[in-house]
Design a protein around this nucleic acid. Structure first.
Lengths: 251, 251
DNA sequence: CGCTATTTTGAAAGGGCTCAAGAGTAGTGG
DNA sequence: CCACTACTCTTGAGCCCTTTCAAAATAGCG
């Protein structure tokens, strides 16, 4: 219902002003595609936020470099995702291509005037911002109090769900990013990431595809993976006991 | 320039349509104030996001309760702050009063139609969303790779800057929240928070005001505090060395 | 096939957590 | 006003998980 399929997009376009767009996809579709090879930068933290990008194919990572040189990856963006929405004058983070990636871009002005004209686009943008915020919140929870194993499982589970949404039949996960990328995203070291994956393989939760070794993982026991992730997707069952005074023990 | 004082708000109102508002403050100003005593809930994660709130006085904490009962505080809100902006249909987190607090509220509809009418308000909202996102990013960095001491100093420094903005003369920080709140916010245990504060006192960075014991801290060496926070507010000096391949050692 | 980059594995150290107890603070009622 | 109780905060000791440092194994590439 929310996803504008090719069909509905075409249908509703008839009713829209000729210069308008019905969804963000339409807005971007007229822009030429650009290509970025792996590790090529898209923009840098602090640069003037002149453009909004849509990932056409491939993967982007968005990150900050902190004073001592360490890198914190705050997110990965995949085909269809849009980067640069909830921004002020300057980019809050840097972005570069994990692997070979294609994007389309709109100038900030194009984007802003596009959404100013259409309440529908504003709604769509607002939903995306909300999603982005929700993702940031989830990441804070993960970094606040999850163990290495829980972090790894949460990450893999998220990728698994994404590939299921895209209609993947087999329970396999493609990892375009390196172990170092995963470590910088999950707030761990590369060694801990590696060890944790090994542990999950020993537990028969995962299995390494001998094909594109290490960057393709198949999930043997998805249920166990979900349990180990420790999300339990909200504890909505206990939502209504009021007055939970602080966290009870443990971090 | 950005802060709409009583005066400018009154002045510019003449030029605006009678039903419009020039800034969010105006939009809220007509609403009655509501009072929440300490620990009283404002709304719960997952509830229908029916209202947007403005803090008039006091402090709110916004948090999530995760499956094992632990609490993660994702932010504190102080006088003037607005909560519930970047939301979809449901609240992403719960909110309650840290201490005695007063708020004003708008229904989602009031808020949405208010900003729909005014490009100026949309700009203001967009800026607030951007700030919220920036804060979330900073928190991710803090949780990803800062030590207990760095976290504590970052937190205190933020509060110090806030109180400076409000025109405080003395270098003192009021902590309306409990040690447990701080711990749940910084991803630490209450014991570590306590120990870290003690350590900072021993280092002569802080000093406890014997007045409102423990919830009023004076900063003896603000410069050292900033150094220990390890922010170095962006490493904008090194922004342009491209191709920083992963974080170099250490997390 | 040899070189380099990435990943894995091992051993030791450390920082924050856990468990436990003590000290300080606040609220209550005699 | 002070004793009593409940709660928050602090301090101590030991442990565990993750990090650190180091080296070997594997993958990628010319």
């Amino acid at each position: 219902m929310y996803i504008a399929s090719e069909h509905t997009a075409h249908f509703t376009r008839k009713h829209a002003p000729s210069d308008g767009a019905n969804c963000l996809r339409d807005l971007f579709s007229k822009q030429p595609v650009e290509h970025r090879s792996g590790n090529r930068s898209l923009f840098l933290e602090g640069d003037e936020a002149a453009h909004v990008f849509q990932v056409v194919e491939g993967t982007l990572r968005i990150f900050k470099i902190i004073s001592d040189g360490r890198r914190v990856i705050t997110g990965f963006l995949y085909a269809g995702d849009i980067v640069g929405i909830s921004l002020g004058k300057r980019y809050l983070y840097s972005a570069d291509a994990v692997s070979s990636t294609t994007v389309r871009r709109l100038t900030r002005n194009q984007f802003d005037s596009g959404i100013d004209e259409s309440p529908r686009l504003r709604t769509e943008v607002s939903a995306l911002v909300s999603d982005e915020m929700a993702a940031a919140q989830d990441q804070m929870v993960l970094l606040s109090c999850k163990s290495a194993e829980e972090r790894m499982c949460s990450f893999l589970l998220k990728l698994l769900k994404k590939s299921e949404l895209l209609g993947e039949r087999r329970l396999s996960i493609e990892l375009p990013m390196s172990r170092q990328d995963i470590a910088d995203y999950l707030g761990l070291t590369i060694e801990t990431v590696s060890r944790t994956i090994t542990k999950l393989i020993n537990k028969r939760v995962l299995r390494i595809e001998n094909a594109v070794a290490r960057h393709s993982i198949s999930v043997e026991r998805p249920v166990l993976l979900a349990q180990l992730a420790g999300d339990d997707d909200d504890c909505s069952d206990m939502r209504h006991d009021l007055v939970v005074q602080g966290s009870q023990r443990r971090h």
